Simulated scan of single mutants.
Amino acid sequence: MSKQDKPAGAPRHVAVIMDGNGRWAQSRGRPRLFGHQAGARRVREIVEACPDCGVEYLTIFAFSTENWKRTQDEVAGLMSLFRIYITREARALRDNDVRVRFIGDRVRLDHKLQKLMDQLEAMTAHCEGTNLTIALNYGGRDEVARATKRLAEDVAAGRLDPADVGEETLPRYLDTCLLPDPDLVIRTSGEARISNFLLWQSAYSEYEFVDTLWPDFTAAEFARLTETFGRRERRYGAVPA
């Protein structure tokens, strides 16, 4: 589907908090990592559904700055899963014209994973189809703090006049500076909170909280939510004409 043929009213950018992997596994008597593996497989289906839904940008919340609080075994398993996912999916993503970007603080991630992330971004930099952004070691407050630090450094160095700092300035320093703000944010698993995800960017996003656990979240449900979005009236603080 070309951009000209996208469904009327489709969200250009959808962000997803992929929640419920652990509970999905535990309900089946399996370890939590089994659920994360199932959730990783689900990502491909949703990425592939984006063109037909008219979605140009998909951002997924893979690992938060708070997730380091989980058990050492689960964190180690997740980091291994990220390395496996990137290695396994890189060629398919490139061949399907998917451009991949990562957001978040990479410093705490191991060097092998950082290298794989860099390689995947470079491999898909020419792609012009779906834009997939993976939030890895990401937190909204951490992102704003890092952006503010860089802004302050530019002010201190004389590269930025404090008088010129306004609402449009900070976004240029955010991890998402190359992305449009999300139109729709989806959270699976029945939880109704945003968990420190895209705090600045989602100020006027529409939200959908669904009960489905992420490994059970299908392309059909994704399509239904994007279609429902098209019937919403977004006023950005104004009143209907």
Rank of each mutant, 00 (worst) to 15 (best):
D118R: 10
C127K: 10
A147D: 08
T87M: 05
Q26M: 03
K69L: 07
V210T: 14
L78I: 06
L33K: 05
G104S: 05
A147R: 09
Y204M: 04
R44M: 02
L136A: 10
H13C: 00
F217V: 04
L109E: 07
Y173A: 06
L184A: 07
V55L: 08
P51H: 13
P31S: 10
A90I: 00
M117I: 05
C127V: 05
C53N: 14
V210I: 11
F61W: 12
E233D: 07
V144A: 13
S64R: 02
K149N: 12
A157R: 08
T176D: 10
L199I: 14
Y173V: 01
L132S: 06
L120F: 05
R101E: 07
V100S: 11
P51S: 11
Y57E: 11
K149G: 06
R106I: 01
P180R: 11
R44P: 00
I134A: 04
P31T: 02
N67C: 07
G230K: 11
F61H: 14
N131I: 04
A122C: 10
T228D: 15
R141I: 02
W214H: 09
L113K: 07
E206R: 09
V75C: 11
D154V: 00
G139M: 03
K6F: 06
R99L: 05
M123Q: 15
E168K: 11
A25C: 02
D97L: 04
E221H: 14
G140M: 00
L225N: 06
A76T: 09
T226K: 00
A122V: 02
A203T: 05
M18P: 01
F217T: 03
A223C: 04
L33F: 08
F82H: 14
G20W: 06
R224G: 11
A62I: 02
G9V: 01
G230Y: 13
R28E: 03
N137A: 03
R94N: 04
R159E: 12
G129D: 04
R30P: 01
P51C: 09
Q26R: 14
R232H: 12
N21C: 09
S195L: 01
N137R: 00
F82A: 12
L170V: 02
E233W: 03
R42H: 01
F222Y: 15
W214R: 12
V75A: 12
T169F: 06
D52T: 12
N96Y: 08
G166W: 00
R172A: 14
H111K: 15
G139H: 00
A8P: 07
T148G: 13
L113D: 11
R106A: 12
M123D: 15
A62G: 13
A145Q: 12
V210W: 03
T71G: 14
Y138H: 10
C177I: 00
A122T: 08
A192E: 14
Q114V: 00
R28T: 02
T71N: 07
H111M: 09
V100L: 03
M18L: 03
F82W: 13
H111R: 15
W200L: 10
R12M: 02
P240S: 10
L160H: 07
P11W: 01
K69T: 14
F82T: 05
Y138N: 08
A8H: 14
G22Q: 10
L198S: 12
V47W: 03
F229S: 05
R101Y: 07
L58K: 10
Y207A: 05
I46Q: 13
Y138V: 08
R70K: 08
T133H: 02
D183Y: 04
L225Y: 10
A163F: 04
